[in-house]
């Protein structure tokens, strides 16, 4: 299963594609499970990059844990949460994410 991720052009914020927009947290990201879905997301990513909304667009592997989208690789887990040595920084520092965790 995959989701589409990138960094927002203006401030570099890590974002995921969700419901037709770029969300700042991963929970609601659109997941795809087949080649056609991946191609659809890739096309969306390429267009968003071409439209200068985001940079460094990638499809990443995820799983669903207790109903929540979770990245497979540690690198992507850290992008989704923030530095592991500072839980006061990054997404994990936000009240709603902290609750979800």
């Amino acid at each position: 299963m995959k989701v589409l991720t990138a960094n927002r052009l203006g401030d570099g914020e890590v974002v995921w594609y969700a419901n037709g927009a770029w969300a700042e947290t991963i929970e609601a990201a659109d997941t795809v499970a087949d080649k056609a879905g991946e191609e659809r997301l890739e096309a969306i990513g390429a267009k968003a990059a071409a439209d200068n909304l985001v940079v460094d667009v990638n499809l990443i592997d995820v799983t669903i844990v207790a109903g929540i989208v979770e990245p497979v690789r540690l690198r992507e887990k850290i992008r989704a949460a923030g530095p592991t040595n500072r839980n006061d920084l990054g997404k994990q520092a936000r009240p709603q994410t902290a609750k979800a965790a």
Partner: peptide, 28 residues
């Protein structure tokens, strides 16, 4: 010009790197 979309990331990357700006995991 980059923020206004007048130049692409491929054009901008070497310019930003010359000025010490990287893109890392969480941000620039």
């Amino acid at each position: 010009r980059r923020l206004a979309g007048e130049i692409t990331e491929d054009q901008f990357r070497p310019l930003r790197l010359m000025n010490g700006v990287y893109l890392q995991l969480h941000a620039y």
